[in-house]
Design a binder for these strands. Structure first.
Ligand SMILES: [Mn+2]
Ligand SMILES: [Mn+2]
Ligand SMILES: [Mn+2]
Ligand SMILES: [Mn+2]
Lengths: 219, 219
DNA sequence: ATTAAAATTTAGGTGAACCTAAAAATAAAT
DNA sequence: ATTTATTTTTAGGTTCACCTAAATTTTAAT
């Protein structure tokens, strides 16, 4: 039986290695899990013993096929519970992540099947992130970060790069949610900021820092 | 922050002391939690230190007001999740308890408020057990165990004494569920068994062992 | 009242998951 | 190529939640 702590390590390694990197260093893992590098070494050695992780001294850890499946299932559960919290209990998107961090550890395949079905087999979570299938496949969305759009182009918000509460609150205040139309009016060269019209309504200027964190589908 | 293990001990002590007994012995707790008496002593001493439990050497443990509130909240959460699993996900009543044992440990007051509301503020769980209010009040149902009914009397099933899977399966096979009408046709003196008509339909003979575990409301 | 049985506690130990401080290895900078 | 900085591991703790075996206390039986 795998523990919550072990599950969290697998998820952290998944997150670090999902894009480019082919192994996760102890410092990177420690940062995500708010723990020390020494504790991470300790744990990845145990996970390696259990063959959930591939580990070479001083060269970081990566997920074994078994470890990868466990991590993917956790993400599936996490995102399905986020949909439940959002769609059924009407939690705002800033509050769902922390609760889902707890719920993702509940062990019952039947529960997840029924939940998935009950929610209408959603393919994306309330932050726009894809929900892996039972088999572990991720849909990839054809998306651009807003800062890549040219003047005059319009995008529909389909995702956000991260889930910091303050960032999501900021979007709420601007009445920006998934599905919101964002039209690039002007790209200001000198500071890389972007003037944007929100849903054919108000205007706002996004610093590069923000426009890079908004994923849109071109319209 | 209270751990899952600590929560389970508080719940066990609650269960043992809820009716008559005014303190829970180490053996009784050990039996519920499938652990050793020595481990129980260890834990109740820690819980006593935290003032969640009142403890006197060799005289067992009982819940402090704080401990009682935590235990009651756990039961509230457990039973609300059971309603969710039953009503929304259509799990049969034999399967909900084990999953709820995990879900009851999720920490979020807002979650439970919203869940309660979403479920329509149910007062009883799928086994007929009362769901304590937010303030910790239990409704008490005016109920009789079936073996107390006289010949000719009819009762409606409103609860079961325990939740053993085999027992609930047995009731399922007889098409007995909460709300089912049970009419006492004959009480057999020599072995204390009872002949019962189910929903004005089939007949069955219950040994005392069974009829004592069915709670009905007189009709 | 003794003695036997049962319940409870103490003693001593284990593994999981953390920690800090120090040592060792790797990577970066001069 | 050395030196310096960074990353990672090791060494040596701690706390929590369990364990078995032995000692103690309480309860029941003779
Ligand atoms: Mn999330
Ligand atoms: Mn999400
Ligand atoms: Mn239950
Ligand atoms: Mn129940």
């Amino acid at each position: 039986m795998i523990s919550f702590a072990e599950e969290n390590y697998l998820k952290a390694i998944f997150k670090i290695t999902e894009k480019d990197r082919k192994s996760a260093g102890t410092n990177a893992i420690a940062q995500i899990l708010h723990t020390s590098a020494a504790s991470v070494t300790d744990m990845i050695q145990r996970l390696s013993e259990k063959e959930l992780v591939l580990y070479e001294k001083y060269k970081g850890a990566s997920l074994s096929p078994t470890g990868n499946k466990i991590a993917t299932d956790l993400i599936r559960k996490h995102r399905l519970w986020e949909v439940f919290l959002s769609d059924k209990l009407h939690f705002p998107w800033q509050k769902i992540h922390d609760i889902a961090e707890q719920m993702e550890h509940i062990k019952s395949d039947e529960l997840i099947d029924k939940l998935d079905n009950y929610l209408g087999n959603p393919r994306f979570d309330p932050h726009g992130d894809p929900i892996p299938t039972k088999e572990g496949k991720f849909l990839i969305r054809n998306q651009y970060s807003l800062d890549l759009l040219n003047e005059g182009e319009t995008g529909v918000l389909v995702g956000v790069r991260h889930h910091l509460t303050e960032f999501l609150n900021y979007l709420n205040e601007l009445k920006i949610a998934l599905g919101t139309e964002l039209r690039v009016l002007k790209k200001l060269e000198f500071d890389k900021s972007t003037r944007v019209r929100i849903n054919n309504n108000e205007e706002v200027i996004f610093p590069k820092k923000i426009s890079r964190d908004l994923f849109v589908k071109k319209k």
